[in-house]
Design a protein around this nucleic acid. Sequence first.
DNA 1: TTGTATTGTGTTATTTTGACACAATAATTT
DNA 2: AAATTATTGTGTCAAAATAACACAATACAA
Lengths: 262, 262
Amino acid sequence: MSEDLEKFITSFEMEIDGLLPSVSVDCVILGFEAQELKVLLLQWKNSEKWALPGGFVKQNEHLDDAALRVLEKRTGLSNIFLKQFHTFGSLERSTIKKLDKGLKALLELHKQNEKVYEWVNRRFITTAYFALSDIRKTHPVPDVLSQRCEWKSITSLPELILDHHTILEKALDDLRTQLNYLPIGQSLLPEKFTMQDLKKLYEAVLGRPLDRGNFQRKMLRLGILVRQGKLMSGASNKAPFLYSFDRKVYQKLLREGMGFSY
Amino acid sequence: MSEDLEKFITSFEMEIDGLLPSVSVDCVILGFEAQELKVLLLQWKNSEKWALPGGFVKQNEHLDDAALRVLEKRTGLSNIFLKQFHTFGSLERSTIKKLDKGLKALLELHKQNEKVYEWVNRRFITTAYFALSDIRKTHPVPDVLSQRCEWKSITSLPELILDHHTILEKALDDLRTQLNYLPIGQSLLPEKFTMQDLKKLYEAVLGRPLDRGNFQRKMLRLGILVRQGKLMSGASNKAPFLYSFDRKVYQKLLREGMGFSY
DNA sequence: TTGTATTGTGTTATTTTGACACAATAATTT
DNA sequence: AAATTATTGTGTCAAAATAACACAATACAA
């Protein structure tokens, strides 16, 4: 049993009274790298399974702020696009019984700390948020409870605890249907990018190939892209333009939705 | 002080232990009548303001089931289309302080019942659902806590408690942006209806007029409408066709969204 | 019989979509 | 230098969708 963990449990015991019972938040933090959508997961100590970063809500904290707090603690970034997408309230949620053996054993060891044990063993309703973040700007750090914190490709996910797989699936589904109202380009790509980067991103989200020519023409017609020069990659072919977003036009367009069939 | 209310408070006290703390549900129950969108509101006893029908979640109840329970109790109908749209978790939510004078006084009277008083005075996170219902099939009944339960046109709303106006606005906004994925026709209109009924419904939701001819042609092209004969209204003009929905085709279409610009 | 309001459908210009074509170009190879 | 290669920016063109308006059909009233 680690000393860190001992300390954490003791200090957590004092926090409990300041928390809202039955309520938690979870974040599906998405990034885009190497032409793949990735999600930030963490692996708890003594556990095989992975989990979405989540946390509890303070008595005097807005639900959205709780999600922000989790997000910042986990990625070290503020100013990330964050949006609530669903609240999960099934009966099977939470409760120690559903956790895997290692973690369960760990908690059983602390059964003498009734307050903490009782808290963790509660049923929680969790409000899930998705966050869109530039992977290159994040510095994932595992906290005291976790042994690892990593970006995982959504095409090859590890086993997740509880209903976290369901939550992730729903996040991706909502991402797709709300695509016309979400700043995925601005949030997931670096400052400058090529049209191919943007196309690959949309293909990753939609899960199907798009026609290059038509995609390019439509994107340009939206008027949200600004050319920034060319990318001399060193490859033996024509150099593509670099683009950045015109934030103002982008914002305005998103509010009305960009009525756009890919 | 009514006897009913006394009884209710006593029995509610016994229920409290079976409820999930900090969590509630609210329903935005929408209907369509006289070419207007309407919402089912109730007015609490001793209060001027109106409220969305809501309730608490039982320890052993799915969040969605709690919403269903509220809905059925209020409208007397099951099999209503119900969808979660947002969870509201601002700091100003709930707490007696925010209620109006009459209701506040009523609750102060029951201060001696500590358990009930403390419960009602808590901060609640509320998950909001919208429901789509055929007004002609509902029989709104005020419960013990309410003096009235009525359909109100969304164009002339009374004053609402707490953040219920915000919740309602968000419901209508989400209704609009998700229109291509929602069975508003099937849920809000009677079994048989005219093309004009359907058009007026879409106009009410979108808040703008639509071209009659184009609307008709597009709707027919979707293949979800079945002609059922003509409506001889007695008016001195051509009799319109009556339509009903082909449920199977409708369901299938909704899953993919009907990529439709009105 | 004529008039009226509303309906079902038609017409036409314009825009959008989808599938594919082709010349331009940065670096490599000959 | 010249040819080669992979990828890019843009063009073409038929098919479909959209928007605005037109017109004859019709159920009933006058």
